[in-house]
Amino acid sequence: MDEELNAYLAKVRSEHSERVYFFEQGLGAEVHWFFAQGSEALKAELYLPACTSFLIGIEASIRVTMAQIENPIQVTELDPYKILSNKLLLSAHKKGLPVKLLAFQGEDNFIEKITSTAKPSPYAEIVRIRHNLCHGNILEYVNTELGESNTFFTPECCRALALTLLNISKAWAFGLGDFRKKLNSKS
């Protein structure tokens, strides 16, 4: 009986810890809800909402943090032209935000991408995926395993991406939270 109770309590603690993870990072309510809702959507196997929530959380966290650096008193609106882009990532990098945490596994040239002056410059993967998904372009996730005449798309085709974005979001939230704590301790 004690083993069952201990297993149950461990499961409850683990679920609670997972549920409050993004709230504990010090990102602010205007940001952490995107990540929390993305996590909930992923648990519910809602892969497209999970992906877009994580992407929007990343974008919002950069935009809000940059606005707070520029105006530490109170941010009342965000510049509508500063969206997730290589340019925004470079600006954030120059301000000390840990944007390298947004690199996908194997994207060793992340900093080179955001600093590139080539026209057109290659997008950082997080930017490319944000642009595609948030504009409805899911073509790269269409399943073609059964041949060209049997292609299909279901939200499950984005399951691996949702899991990747969850892991990136967790690392990003932790790193950005640490950055924000250090920034606030200097004020």
Rank of each mutant, 00 (worst) to 15 (best):
E140R: 15
L90R: 02
S121T: 11
L139E: 12
P122T: 08
M66K: 14
Q105L: 07
Y47H: 10
N137A: 01
K119L: 13
T117D: 14
N137T: 05
A67H: 04
S61L: 07
S85L: 08
D79M: 03
V142F: 09
A92G: 01
I129C: 11
F110D: 03
G106R: 05
S116N: 04
H93K: 07
Y47V: 12
S91D: 13
K113D: 01
L101S: 03
N86I: 10
L84P: 02
G136P: 02
K100A: 12
I114D: 00
A44R: 10
K94C: 02
K95W: 04
V142A: 11
I58W: 05
K119N: 15
V142R: 06
E59V: 01
S61V: 02
E70P: 04
A41P: 03
L102Y: 00
L42D: 05
A41D: 09
A60F: 14
E145Q: 13
T151F: 09
A67P: 00
Q74D: 11
K82D: 10
L55Q: 05
F54N: 04
N132K: 15
I138P: 13
R130D: 05
N109T: 04
L102R: 05
Y47F: 14
I138C: 12
H135K: 07
T115H: 10
I58H: 06
K95F: 06
F110E: 08
N109Q: 03
K119P: 08
L55S: 12
S116G: 11
C51N: 10
K100L: 06
A118Y: 10
V75S: 10
I129F: 12
E107L: 06
I114A: 04
I114E: 01
S85P: 07
C134S: 09
L139V: 14
Y81V: 01
S85A: 13
H135D: 01
L46W: 04
V75P: 06
K87G: 00
N143P: 07
R128A: 10
A50Q: 09
G57R: 03
Y81K: 13
N137E: 06
E125I: 11
L48G: 01
I56N: 13
